[in-house]
Computed example of a mutant assay.
Amino acid sequence: MSQVAEAPASRDPDELADPASYDGLALRRLTKHFGAFHAVRELDLDVPRGSFFALLGPSGCGKTTTLRMAAGLETPSSGTITLAGKDITYAKPYQRPVNTVFQNYALFPHLDIYENVAFGLRRRKQKDVDAQVRDMLELVELSSQARKKPTQLSGGQQQRVALARALINSPEVLLLDEPLGALDLKLRRSMQIEIKRIQTEVGRTFIHVTHDQEEAMTMADTVAVMNAGVIEQMGAPAELYENPRSTFVANFLGQSNLIEGTVKSRAADVVTVDMHGVDVSVPASRAHTDGDQGWIGIRPEKVLIGEVGEELDAPGNTIPGGVVSDVSFVGVSTQYLVRMPWGQELQVFSQNTGRHRLFATGDEVELSWRPEYAFLLDAAQDASAGAQRMDADG
């Protein structure tokens, strides 16, 4: 487990809004324990109104428990939840302007699509039901399916019915609990785009819980990566991927090469690190350790591979002495494992543009990368943290 689970982004009081005047969802020191097990630990979080926010993490990290507390389906052990300045910590689910869409959709099988969507309005005896239902079915592009039963629809269509049924109640916040988990890969990807389109059109706050890093990064404006009940790091998807602050985030979001190194010098804008006898540079803004030892991180697609002595387009960090130990051709790219002189195998993802020949197992190669793509993490952290992603909910 990472040693920096409580990331500054989630704990710095200077960066948190005043819950009493904040128009979004604010969690303060939110804690939930089940006996001796702490599912969520003193979580501080602001979710801006109208944003698409993702809680991302592996099974058991606390993301679903956090969502259920926001929905009113779990009672916090301590802490507060406010929405648009109103304390809803102990409000019943029906008393808070929040709706939840679950992975199993929970549609009424005996009602047609129109009546499924109209259900909440009819229960509250609202007027003008027909116009609202028709508008919502048009939003989710299901107008032509209005009189079909749920079992007559595909999984993706059922998901859109569930969205429409939740959104027609005009919730301040829509909670999405692993909403695409039951869909196949191709449909899941199309639904990612569809849900993002719907969120943009309605302008409501969406909070999406998922263990799928690609799903979170594709859909959300902001992603909070959770681990062991706390937020490891929070930010825009590109920021988290390009500049992770812990080994857990580096491994959980995609894949990373993490290589031992010793800090030789620190300047205002660059840190120089001895990596098994080769000096490499890391931008100071991407160096996240104050110690002398660290993990030099580089994403596999940022590593260039070439012949011995070949001039690679990555001035500054060239590492000789590599031998290709495995080759996997995956269409758009070729994925190599390259054994380095110190015994570690590094991953290299090389785009198949046709400009370079494919290397074979046993070929001697050199690797290179641009210094601005590297990052440096605390050596006290586990280099394998976050690497084993699990597909279960948590």
Rank of each mutant, 00 (worst) to 15 (best):
R68T: 03
L185K: 15
L83V: 10
K148M: 13
V140D: 02
A238L: 15
F252H: 04
V101E: 02
G316Q: 11
Q351R: 15
S143M: 04
D212V: 10
T75Q: 12
Y336S: 01
Y373T: 10
Y241C: 01
G291R: 10
L121R: 05
T82H: 14
A71I: 03
V209E: 06
A374Y: 00
Q3D: 12
G386I: 07
D46W: 06
E6W: 10
V263E: 06
V230N: 11
G354P: 08
Q152G: 00
V303F: 06
P315S: 10
R189H: 12
L137V: 07
M217G: 08
L376M: 09
G235R: 04
V173G: 01
Q213S: 03
I207N: 03
Q103P: 02
Q213K: 08
G362K: 10
I195V: 15
G386L: 05
G57E: 09
G394R: 11
F102Y: 12
D269M: 08
L73T: 05
M217T: 11
Q3C: 13
T318H: 13
T31E: 00
I319Q: 04
T289Q: 05
G203A: 06
D135A: 15
R189L: 09
L137S: 07
P371R: 02
T222F: 06
V348D: 03
A380S: 15
A383P: 12
L337M: 11
D212I: 07
E242L: 09
V280N: 00
P8A: 09
R160D: 01
L304E: 12
M390N: 15
G156V: 05
D177T: 08
V332W: 09
A106E: 10
V225P: 04
G156S: 06
G294D: 06
P58N: 10
L67R: 06
L111T: 11
S21I: 06
E215W: 05
T353Q: 07
S78F: 02
E15N: 13
A7H: 13
P48V: 02
A118N: 07
K186W: 07
M69L: 08
S256Y: 04
Q347W: 11
Q192M: 05
P150M: 03
A392S: 14
A387Y: 09
E172F: 00
V271G: 08
R124T: 12
L367R: 02
A224R: 00
G72W: 00
A228V: 11
S10R: 06
Q157E: 13
V4T: 15
D290P: 07
S144H: 15
Q199R: 10
E115M: 12
P109C: 04
P76M: 05
V330S: 13
T151S: 15
Y105P: 11
T218R: 08
D290Q: 14
Q132K: 15
D112K: 04
A220T: 00
G309W: 10
E74V: 04
L137T: 07
T222I: 12
A17Y: 01
G50W: 02
W295Q: 00
E74W: 00
V273D: 02
K125V: 03
A220P: 02
Q3E: 14
G386A: 07
G57V: 02
V332G: 15
I198D: 10
W295M: 03
A392W: 14
G235T: 08
N243T: 13
L258W: 05
R134P: 01
A146H: 11
M219F: 05
L183P: 03
K196R: 15
K125R: 13
D23W: 06
R299H: 10
L376Y: 09
T66N: 01
A385Y: 00
G254R: 09
E6K: 14
T200S: 12
